[in-house]
Amino acid sequence: MLTGTALFLSSILTLAAIYAVIALALNLEAGVDGLWDLGVVSFVAVGAYTYTMLTVSPASAGQSYIMGFGLPMWVGVLAAGIAGSIVAFLIGKPTLKLKNEYFLITTFAFAEVIRQILTNERWLSNGVAGVYNLAQPFKTYFTPSVYPYILLLLLVIIVFIVYVVVHRLTYSTFGRSLKALRENEPLALTAGIRPDRFHIRAFVIAGFFAGTAGAFYVWYSTVITPSLFTSDITFFVWMAIVIGGLANNKGAIVGSVIFVLAGESLRFLDLGSGFAVRMASMKIAILGLILIAILKWRPQGILPEKKVKFSNSSKNS
């Protein structure tokens, strides 16, 4: 029997799966490539808005946004990824030449610029009012009590696909080149690995997956407003990959699941409604302590990056 608790659990695991997609994207650029990107939320936002503007009906009275073509969802998801990639390219082209700390500040600033554009340019996406009551995939085929499990199943399949793609990229020549750049850029250069080309590719691929995650986020929330896309998402995903294990794709998923579960499981520390507000602040502190404990216990993350071993035959040849 499907209990209410299982329903709630499926809802938070769905959210964890969405974060896992963003974490896998960030892990490719930040973990494997070593780019300190503090603007990953901008790709998510652009993807989410692109998806919405393409799939939603035309703006009604009192609303104001472009497009509204009512296209199929799969077109929207694909477009969300492409839009994320384009924004990644446009941001990456001028910023990837910068050193880490400057790159970090610049990407953070770009993300905020994009959020401010979405906030202030009402003609573009209905400003702060956003768009509400957005459709979810396959919803008409299932009852409300079953649908959360269907959405979870869909997201689990998506996470698996993204994991396989990112995993293959990580262990491909491309991925090894990124790691070489991360570990020793001058040495990688002598091996013919051009930093500008490889960094921008990693950045654009990450933008694609983070962009699609924006569409999935809309599926989950059924609402889109600029306030959804604050730097909280960036920091959340960074914490997830650090806890899970930087540069380990399984770690990115594990970190996301643990982080979401840890946060939401604290909802069950119930001392009654009279203490609920004060407990909410305490829960944040408790969550912080849990994270500190995990990092103390596993400073390299729960699943550290695997060392690559080369066989003697290749060494001798």
Binding site: G4, S11, I12, Y220, S221, S227, L228, R267
Partner: peptide
């Protein structure tokens, strides 16, 4: 926010 609202409502209803 939106995300927390969905979670809170889901828990209040289902749990």
């Amino acid at each position: 926010g939106v995300e927390g609202s969905v979670q809170a409502a889901t828990k209040l209803l289902s749990v």
